[in-house]
């Protein structure tokens, strides 16, 4: 059970930096009360953030990623269950991977 001072310092530095990222944006917003345009941009942010996160990640997975993503969206839309949607996504990736391997082996 070791706790080295240099490791502890690195961890505390990361923790402080991360907390400032989490809370700093809101603290600035509260202090400055930005103009209405900035406020409307922030209201529009959630969708674009996760599009910008997910699209490159899906592109990295190639065609299997896009097919699996369509399955995830369909299951989430109809079942409204995050667990079902996530499991279908993993299942689709596993199934499509097996299918691809089978085709390549022929």
């Amino acid at each position: 059970m070791t706790l080295r001072p240099d490791v502890l310092l690195a961890i505390i530095g990361m923790a402080v930096a991360t907390y400032l990222c989490r809370a700093g944006g809101y603290a600035l917003f509260r202090a400055l009360r930005p103009p209405r345009y900035v406020e409307v941009v922030l209201q529009h942010l959630p969708g674009p953030i996760f599009m910008a996160y997910a699209m490159p990640a899906l592109a990295a997975h190639g065609w299997k990623g896009w097919v699996a993503a369509v399955a995830v969206v369909a299951v989430q839309y109809f079942s409204r269950s995050l667990a079902a949607a996530i499991l279908i996504g993993v299942g689709a990736m596993a199934g499509l991977g097996a299918l691809e391997a089978w085709f390549l082996a022929r």
């Binding site: 690195a10 530095g13 990361m14 990222c21 989490r22 809101y26 600035l28 917003f29 922030l42 953030i49």
Partner: peptide, 27 residues
């Protein structure tokens, strides 16, 4: 070795700066 204090802090800022506007959006 020893722990890269500055690099770890920079890594935390670079990756986590995305969370700064999130709090503001939940105002």
């Amino acid at each position: 070795e020893p722990a890269p204090i500055l690099a770890a802090i920079i890594a935390a800022i670079v990756v986590n700066i995305r969370m700064a506007p999130m709090g503001a959006a939940l105002a």
